[in-house]
Design a protein around this nucleic acid. Structure first.
Lengths: 219, 219
DNA sequence: ACCTGAACACCGTTCAAGT
DNA sequence: ACCTGAACACCGTTCAAGT
């Protein structure tokens, strides 16, 4: 990678995406990116005003990547679910970008493609036009929140995760049965927040879409 | 605050909670906390193995604070909703801790109280015992994801937020109507992810709880 | 026994000086 | 016109040396 002198904005974004994919936890930095490119971090500031702007640009690219493998199939619920799973997978490979996506309103072509597909799916559902913007927003909030939350968990180091699990076990199993009767009864079977995420994602989304469907006006 | 020589773990947690409340964005640091206490950052490492452990302990305290103002009232859905809104408010005052809460399985008394109340509410709903752990988990994932996501947005600086809004506007209004017909049709009425959050939170939660209720076995 | 200071290995960002 | 190097103002964490 090193040895060249000049890098285009596109090449920088490529390298950043690659570094974000391979670097674990929160270890991505402007300086490391510059090192990979064989240049000084200060030269990247000609292409981006800040690290945030750089991350936002890479997040757009991930969105595009997620949309790339998408072909509309099935009914509106299946289409939205497929989109959501594509996003989950793409941001699963770039956990640090999921937070960026959720934090900053996205833009760019990937974002447009995504919005278009979800809106078309909703339109084909039979939902009245005036309800579409709000329904769209709620679906977007749900998906972004779940993806960002899952990605956040995946940036926890194994040691920290195990430490947290141990604390959870103590909290649940060590609870006084007189003060916490329900916890004593059910605690053993409860997953901590970080566990069972894929199933929770699919169920929460499916439940929400089913509920929209149930409230549709008769065809 | 300064001038004293020795600080108990509890006093450190108090000061940390206060600093997290007043410091904006991601500006909390171990060094700043030490400065507030008039001591050196290294001395805090006798009380906590890492910054993460410190944040986790403060998050537990926030949970306790949220549970403090809670009195069970109404049916099971109202009780869970009241708990969720309490949490949302408490972490709204400490946005940086919402991420910690969502990332690490929580423990401590606050966490136990919260779990107990949600479990009791679910039990009183008429849900079969063997479904309670999974229902509990999905509700917890949903609430934690929404709160962390909302808190993440609130750590964006006003300039960055405005920048993001502008990009969103361009993405939506500048879309080619031939390639993005649905976007051209509905874009004007769509809120960006960061907007309309309180309503989205309440609706998504209410929708999920309604759906659990609809699937309850007949009384 | 406890705390302090200094140090290590990092950050994001700016800007004068070089080519 | 573009890049580099050095600098600024920070980080989390460790550990020998002090009291």
């Amino acid at each position: 990678m090193a040895g060249r002198r000049r890098w285009s904005t596109e090449e920088i974004l490529d390298a950043a995406a690659e570094l974000l994919r391979t670097s674990d936890a929160d270890s991505f930095s402007v300086r490391k990116l510059a090192a990979v490119l064989g240049t000084d971090s200060s030269s990247l500031y000609r292409h981006f005003r800040s690290k945030t702007e750089l991350l936002r640009a890479v997040a757009d690219r991930i969105l595009l990547e997620a949309m790339d493998g998408y072909r509309p199939e099935g009914d509106w619920k299946q289409r939205i679910t497929a989109l959501a799973l594509n996003l989950r997978e793409a941001f699963g490979r770039h956990p640090q970008l999921a937070a960026t996506w959720g934090r900053y309103a996205s833009s760019g072509t990937g974002s447009r493609l995504l919005m278009e597909e979800v809106l078309q799916a909703l339109r084909s559902s039979g939902l009245p036009d005036d309800e579409i913007p709000t329904r769209y927003h709620r679906i977007a909030v749900l998906i972004a929140a779940l993806i960002a939350s899952e990605a956040g968990i995946s940036t926890v180091t194994p040691e920290e995760y195990e430490q947290g699990m141990e604390l959870f076990r103590v909290a649940v199993l060590g609870a006084d049965p007189d003060r916490f009767p329900a916890l004593a009864r059910f605690g053993r079977d409860i997953h901590p927040l970080g566990a069972d995420r894929p199933a929770a994602f699919e169920e929460l989304l499916a439940a929400h879409l089913d509920r929209i469907e149930a409230a549709l006006p008769p065809a």
